[in-house]
Design a protein around this nucleic acid. Structure first.
Length: 307
DNA sequence: ACTAGCCCCTGGGAGC
DNA sequence: TGCTCCCAGGGGCTAG
């Protein structure tokens, strides 16, 4: 699922591909639940206004905020795409075809023919004859259109915490953010987008494995030196995720339709019943449910701190 | 301010 | 083969 490294990968690649291109058309299918603010693209009237607002606009740059891809337009508007579970943006040559379940067919690149790239529910046609398409198997993704100056008010951006990879986000700020919720379980705190933006289930498991902290530890009970380890692990694991082009254990693909490689480097996430890879540990990875989400950890070297 | 539970959605896997 | 049931989960929401 797209977390910070996947969204960063997408935004960085798009930046190379679509800058300076104009949006010449927009299409969405009937069932698309693509939200625009509180409204949705499936509301035909609202989609028409969305369309009108972006047609002819030129893409000036793209970047990331939390788990959102931001596409800046030269009319001072921003398209914010939250890919949620199974969404990803694809750039390539598409042909509209008339078959029931598959309306768009990828012509190139070849990687777009991957089955996970076939759930196309939103297509921006671009002035270079190619398209930016949103493939989203489970239709959870959300698309917001907002004015650049009021970007901080749209639902997916308004309450986001700081960016964990920002250079000025140091150990003190990290502690400060986490200690806003000292009774929270550390895994949930790391995944709370209001505390820190961008971390989800995969990377929180990996960060806690690397720092030797049990996911159920109470944030406020974690000793100082462990905080430093979590902080360090957070930066390292997220950067590693980016270096590997994101995680494609499930459906994530980059804009070329290609997989990332981080799934081959998991130590905890979905490693249930396997032997812990930490040297000399020998524990067996367990899976538990934390806040309705699965958490994977080694009960031997990940210490539980309680108040 | 917390938690539990439901909802959105659908492909894939297990069990029969 | 094909049916049914459950699971994956980010985040918004409600109820307690």
């Amino acid at each position: 699922m797209p977390e910070l490294p996947e969204v960063q990968t997408t935004a960085s690649i798009l930046h190379k591909l679509v800058i300076g291109l104009k949006i010449t058309d927009v299409w969405t299918d009937y069932g698309g639940e693509y939200h625009l603010g509180k409204k949705q693209i499936k509301d035909k009237k609202y989609f028409q206004s969305f369309r009108k607002n972006i047609l002819g606009a030129k893409i000036t740059h793209t970047n990331r905020r939390g788990k959102n891809v931001l596409i800046y337009l030269d009319n001072k508007k921003i398209i914010a795409v939250h890919m949620k579970m199974t969404g990803h943006l694809l750039y390539g040559k598409y042909k509209k075809i008339g078959i029931k379940s598959v309306v768009w067919e990828a012509i190139e690149p070849e990687a777009l023919k991957d089955s996970f790239n076939q759930f196309i529910h939103l297509v921006f046609s671009l002035s270079d004859g190619k398209s930016l398409a949103l493939s989203d198997m489970r239709k959870f993704a959300k698309v917001n259109l907002t004015e650049e100056e009021s970007a901080g008010t749209i639902p997916d951006l308004a309450h986001l915490g700081p960016e964990p990879l920002e250079k000025n986000f140091d150990l003190n700020k990290f502690k400060e953010r986490l200690m806003l919720r000292p009774t929270k379980k550390i895994k949930q705190a790391l995944m709370d987008q209001e505390i820190i933006a961008g971390i989800g289930n995969i990377y929180s498991d990996e960060i806690l494995f690397a720092s030797g902290v049990h996911p159920l530890s109470k944030t406020g009970a974690i000793p100082k030196e462990k905080f430093a380890l979590i902080f360090k692990a957070m930066k390292l694991v997220l950067e590693k995720g980016i270096d590997f082009g994101g995680d494609s254990m499930s459906d994530y693909r980059n804009p070329y339709g290609e997989r990332g490689e981080f799934q081959h480097h998991h130590k905890a996430y979905r490693k249930t019943d396997l032997v812990c890879e930490r040297k000399g540990c020998g524990g067996i990875i367990e899976r538990i449910v934390v806040g309705g989400r699965s958490a994977h950890f080694c009960p031997r070297h990940q210490k539980k701190y309680e108040i």
